[in-house]
């Protein structure tokens, strides 16, 4: 039934003149590229070769830096038995214009930096306050160490939690009639004070979803020394209208989004007005997240196979980058 709402889009076609113009542009660019490659291969441009060699060296140093991680202990050789390090995408973020300090190990794009947030205004209350949450997919977030049996993640601040996708949670079959514990082999929610499940089997036979929780444990059944949860772990920031300061931000978000929708529905949006509204929206979103993330921490508890355990605490915050605010993860 939903397909029909997209049918009108079939009428949209690129103007033929634009296609021809673009093909010509692409051809010119390709020919120019071919010439420049040839010059390079013939060795005429020694300056270029020198620059390329330097760039390759720098790239090598960068790769080594990424490989060994941003945690100081990995550089200083302090890693001892039954210890672990946490690395994330700090180097990559630095390249994107986020001024990361020594303690920042990861930075993830926020709303104003191009990420998506959900202002669920369709569920807005009578007080005209939308539900709001933004999730950050923690790519390149790694735990590294020997003899790791399990890792427990605990979000300590109100309004912060995780969206996880354990193995066995996503399948094209119908939902098995088994309990969570039987279904999941790599994660458990035994310690979570809050959890919610969003998994449905669609009419088209697909089952997908996420589990929201403030605490979960990853079980390292394959005895891996390098645990990467990038496709399974998202950090969520949610606004709560119970708190007056957050309620004020939520209200602003509602107003700006309503204005954007009505502006666009009129068909001829004023560029300047729309640009300003998007800016206001992103600023209200950042302001709200700063309130939620004030003093927010995440505990990472690693249990080792010899029965010992170690805890590291991560500070969650927002930092300004070239393109706007980013969620940052720092070592406490």
């Amino acid at each position: 039934m939903y397909k029909k709402y997209f049918e009108k889009l079939s009428d949209i076609k690129v103007p033929e003149k634009l296609v021809e113009e673009t093909v010509m542009m692409a051809r010119d660019k390709n020919e120019a590229k071919g010439l420049s490659d040839e010059t390079r291969r013939s060795g005429y441009s020694f300056r270029y070769l020198g620059t390329a060699a330097l760039a390759a060296c720098l790239a090598g140093v960068f790769m080594l830096t990424v490989f060994f991680g941003a945690d100081k202990s990995s550089w200083q050789g302090e890693k001892k038995e039954n210890s672990f390090i946490i690395t994330a995408n700090a180097m990559e973020a630095q390249n994107l214009g986020v001024d990361v300090s020594d303690t920042v190990i990861g930075a993830y794009a926020g709303e104003s930096a191009g990420s998506w947030a959900m202002y669920e205004n369709f569920e807005k209350t009578s007080e005209e306050v939308p539900a709001y949450f933004q999730s950050y997919c923690l790519n390149s977030f790694n735990i590294e160490g020997e003899g790791i049996e399990s890792v427990t993640f605990r979000a300590n601040a109100k309004g912060t939690y995780f969206a996880i996708s354990p193995d066995g949670y996503y399948s094209s079959d119908t939902l098995p009639q088994t309990s969570q514990a039987e279904r999941f082999t790599d994660m458990s929610l035994s310690n979570s004070a809050y959890s919610a499940e969003e998994l449905l089997t669609y009419q088209d036979g697909l089952s997908y979803g996420e589990i929201y929780c403030d605490t979960f444990t990853y079980h390292n059944k394959d005895d891996r020394d390098f645990i990467n949860l990038c496709n399974k772990l998202e950090f969520v920031v949610e606004g709560d209208s119970k708190y007056p300061e957050q309620a004020a931000c939520l209200k602003k978000l509602w107003i700006y989004e309503e204005e954007i929708i009505s502006e666009k529905a009129e068909g001829i949006p004023s560029g300047e007005k729309l640009g300003n509204l998007y800016l206001e929206l992103a600023e209200a979103s950042d302001e709200l997240q700063e309130l939620v993330l004030k003093d927010a921490t995440v505990d990472v508890v690693v249990n080792f196979s010899d029965g010992s355990s170690e805890t590291k605490t991560l500070l969650m915050g927002l930092l300004s980058g070239e393109n706007g605010k980013w969620l940052t993860i720092s070592m406490k």
Partner: peptide, 18 residues
């Protein structure tokens, strides 16, 4: 560049919303 489960959730939320 997002998790398949997130795509599934968005698809579901999108359809509910629609």
């Amino acid at each position: 560049g997002i998790n398949p489960n997130t795509v599934g959730s968005q698809l579901r939320r999108g359809r509910e919303r629609l």
